[in-house]
Write a protein that binds this DNA or RNA. Sequence first.
RNA 1: GUGGCUGUAGCUCAGUUGGUUAGAGCGCCAGUUUGUGGUACUGGAUGUCGUGGGUUCAACUCCCAUCAGCCACCCCA
Length: 425
Amino acid sequence: MKTTKENMTQNTQPYKGTRDFYPEDKRLQKWMFSKWREVCESFGYEEYDGPILEPLELYTSKTSEEVVNEQTYSFTDRGGRSVVMRPEMTPTVSRMVAARRQELGYPLRLYSIPNCFRYERTQRGRTREFWQLNADLFGIEGIEAEMEILLLTDRLMTVFGAKRNMYEIRLNSRKLLNSQIDKSDPSVEQQEVVRLVDKRDKMPEADFLSELKKLVSKPDQLLKFLDTKDISNIEDPAADGLKELLEMAKDNGMTNVVFMPSVARGFDYYTDIVFEVFDLDPENNRAMFGGGRYDGLVAEFGVEPVPTIGIAPGDVTLQNFLESWDLLPKLETETNLYVVLVGEVFEGAQKIVSKLRDEGVRVAVDMSGRKVGKQIETAVKKGIPYLLVIGEEELKSEQFKLKDLASGEEKEYSLERVVSTVLAE
RNA sequence: GUGGCUGUAGCUCAGUUGGUUAGAGCGCCAGUUUGUGGUACUGGAUGUCGUGGGUUCAACUCCCAUCAGCCACCCCA
């Protein structure tokens, strides 16, 4: 059978919206995830995981309608069940908490880094498979939970080298927003107004106003609220928590936490405090990720409610952020030593190599039989820092030529010195 | 789902008002007498010009469709 060029290109491309992770890409991902883990664990969050596949019902009435109806990868399994590949993690973790509602200790701190799938048109910052950190705090009703999540969010940015002038944490409250909507018109459908408010910055102001007038008979009260910059001007009991939270954030030196009445978030399950982390780079001015309180979700599984607040930063948006602020590190290969073989010494060299591995050196052996120059080129290409030459002479003398590939320096060492030199870095 | 832009070697691109053997740089491979790379020199491979159809004596260049990528909207990580 003839393989056509067309087939070749199709076969080597990853499926639309997914990414192949070659070693240099995977290194970056591992680096980001390890930072996420480091920060979460420093707050006492424990890692969990759940299945990629979930029954469709898990998402109906929990996630936003559009996400469930139009953006899921779904299929019917051989038993006739509707199955989806998880578009987000929150329903899964809520299900898990509900299942062991009584035996889990509260406050319960959980985090996970799941890959999620959404059938969407791809664009900057948006793929069809993505990873997101989900960190959730269960069992605390008070504003202290929000405060912890804000501190966590802040660290999740600064751990990557982000400065406070690079991003802003914008706070609002669904409860407050709904209360303000009620005041302007008690009969109005809150959810629709919330959605409209969420879109305000992205549409012409005139359109926003005319849309708003369709939904609210007396929009002036609401507009006044939306244009409020200083929360202390708002006299509404629903704003109390927010005021307290802003005060606490300020006391903790978080100068980039602000009140933003237009922040609403798309998911239906949020109940009170919501927030978004904004990239302040004018070239990439957008919400990177958000979070908020969703006190009702666990109770959807028929158990007593568990107050919950969580955040979910994504890998793609984070990477865009780090790129635009030049915060991506140069990551090197995990391998620290490349062994060049000269002559028929493969078997003899294995004993040396095993000793090196026993000492914790990560060694790759070139058994290609190519000339030394070619073997060195390969080591350089892979970015391996050290090179060890093993031939008949070395096996006899037990003295080895260790080459520092960056400087080009080469020295004769005993195996012991090889180990200590290579691991010194 | 809606709209805009783009699609020529692995990568970045050039390719004249359609004209007959499609180019450059980088990269890649090989060699410069066989145990040492990153410089230099020499040589080499690679593309049915995203795919399919149409117009034409002739298409990489024009038209249509399709796929893919990018960007914005929608939604959201």
